[in-house]
Amino acid sequence: MQIFVKTLTGKTITLEVEPSDTIENVKAKIQDKEGIPPDQQRLIFAGKQLEDGRTLSDYNIQKESTLHLVLR
């Protein structure tokens, strides 16, 4: 499924993921596309910060959901 990741600069990254993918996994995909190390990434969905060990389905993230990427 496709999800979108919006950065603070207003750029939107499109990722191909599975509901069973972990947040860690998603961060690795963002690193592949954008070169941002996962340890600098914070992903936010519905106002919650997403934890590395959880999966997209844990957070009920469905196709075409938009996550927000904050760098630390």
Rank of each mutant, 00 (worst) to 15 (best):
Q2V: 05
Q2R: 08
Q2D: 12
Q2N: 15
Q2C: 02
Q2E: 11
I3N: 00
I3C: 01
I3E: 00
F4E: 10
F4A: 06
V5P: 00
V5G: 01
V5R: 00
V5E: 00
V5S: 01
K6M: 12
K6S: 06
K6N: 15
T7E: 09
T7D: 13
T7R: 02
T7K: 06
T7N: 12
T7G: 05
L8P: 11
L8D: 15
L8S: 07
L8I: 06
L8C: 02
L8Y: 10
L8A: 06
T9H: 08
T9D: 09
G10N: 14
K11S: 06
K11T: 09
T12Q: 09
I13E: 02
I13G: 01
I13N: 03
T14A: 13
T14L: 10
T14M: 14
T14I: 08
L15V: 06
L15F: 09
E16D: 06
E16L: 07
E16V: 05
E16H: 12
E16Q: 14
E16R: 06
V17P: 01
V17S: 10
E18W: 06
E18V: 03
E18N: 12
E18M: 09
E18D: 12
E18R: 10
P19W: 05
S20L: 15
S20I: 14
S20T: 11
T22R: 08
I23K: 01
E24G: 13
N25G: 12
N25L: 09
N25Q: 05
V26F: 06
K27E: 01
K27G: 02
K27R: 09
A28T: 15
A28M: 05
A28E: 05
K29D: 15
K29V: 01
K29E: 15
I30A: 04
I30V: 14
I30T: 03
I30D: 00
Q31H: 12
Q31M: 08
D32T: 10
D32A: 12
D32C: 03
D32G: 11
D32Y: 12
D32R: 10
E34F: 10
E34N: 02
E34R: 01
E34W: 06
G35L: 10
I36F: 13
I36T: 05
P37H: 10
P38V: 08
P38N: 15
D39P: 04
D39W: 07
Q40I: 09
Q40A: 08
Q40C: 03
Q41F: 04
Q41A: 14
R42D: 15
R42E: 09
L43I: 06
L43N: 00
I44G: 11
I44Y: 13
I44Q: 14
F45K: 03
A46T: 04
A46Y: 08
A46K: 05
A46E: 14
G47R: 04
G47I: 11
G47T: 10
G47K: 07
K48F: 08
K48Q: 11
K48N: 13
Q49D: 14
Q49V: 03
Q49C: 02
Q49E: 15
L50H: 00
L50I: 06
L50N: 00
L50F: 02
L50E: 00
E51F: 04
E51G: 03
D52K: 06
D52V: 02
D52R: 04
G53L: 11
G53F: 15
G53P: 07
G53T: 15
G53Q: 12
R54G: 13
R54M: 09
R54S: 06
R54E: 03
R54P: 09
T55Y: 10
L56K: 00
S57P: 09
D58H: 07
D58C: 02
Y59N: 06
Y59S: 06
Y59K: 01
Y59P: 00
N60D: 09
N60K: 13
I61H: 01
I61M: 09
Q62C: 02
Q62K: 07
K63I: 14
K63V: 04
K63E: 07
S65K: 04
S65T: 06
S65G: 10
T66V: 11
L67E: 01
L67A: 03
H68F: 04
H68W: 03
H68T: 11
L69P: 00
L69A: 04
L69H: 02
L69M: 12
V70F: 11
V70Q: 15
V70Y: 05
L71W: 13
L71T: 09
L71F: 07
R72I: 15
R72Y: 13
R72K: 08
R72M: 11
